[in-house]
Amino acid sequence: MVNSYKMTRAAELEALPIFRDFLDSVCKEHGIGSEFRYDLKLAMDEACTNIITHGYAGMNPGSIMMEVQFQPSHIRLSITDFGLAFEPVETAAPDVNALLEDRVASGFGLYFIYQTMDEVEYRTTVDCNMLTLVKRRHAPDAA
């Protein structure tokens, strides 16, 4: 058995603070520091916001299931939903050096996920859509 915690809520924006508080408290129990916790909450929040605003668009929303697993070397966050699937599109990363007038405030969600997590995997099957995020607890040893 791994140290695993899960929570399922309806996919609505009101669930965001509930998921964040839950993630924060189980991470605290496992002695995870505040910066690390912030990164996890940010990545989770961005992923859930995407599901809530796009994945379940046009229907009375279903569930989002969040599961967090604590391993000695890493933390694994799985976010499962049953809404519309997403597909990857190759785009330019947001330009973090653009002038103000050229700034668009979109595209940061997934960018933050990639910036804060060590592994990002998105899988969609007939059964569910699942985003798996892994953040290592220590920098890997140099080869």
Binding site: H54, F86, E87, L110
Partner: peptide
Amino acid sequence: KFLNLRVS
């Protein structure tokens, strides 16, 4: 370049 996600 990185992969973004959009509704299929």
